[in-house]
Amino acid sequence: MAKTVMVVDDSGSFRTVVKLALQKAGYEVVEAADGKDACGKLDGRKLNLIVCDVNMPQMDGLTFLKHLKNAPNYKFTPVIMLTTESQESKKAEGRAAGARAWITKPFQPSQLVDAVNRLCV
């Protein structure tokens, strides 16, 4: 059975890039347009990993990450932050919130797939 990855990003085209890369690697992909949309999709479904942007409207990625870590069904779901942010302070914030990896955009699809393969539970 294919593993499921949620992609949280406010850019539709960026979600498509990520979705194409992951689907080609055999993953099923659930999309969310921002942190708030992603929270609405934490409805008990099985998520093996989450790929999340940082800067998004309504709810940013780091806030969503904190929310996720308080959700009983998802607190152990690994999260990869995929963002244009490269500041060390932001990375430290992500690490403290429980992110497992930080990828700076633009990214190589193969790099993302390798990271997902490594962290996917």
């Binding site: 690490r95 990896a101 955009k105 790099q111 990271a115």
Partner: peptide, 8 residues
């Protein structure tokens, strides 16, 4: 700078 993956 090249894009890289930083694991925590």
């Amino acid at each position: 700078h090249s894009a890289n993956v930083e694991f925590f």
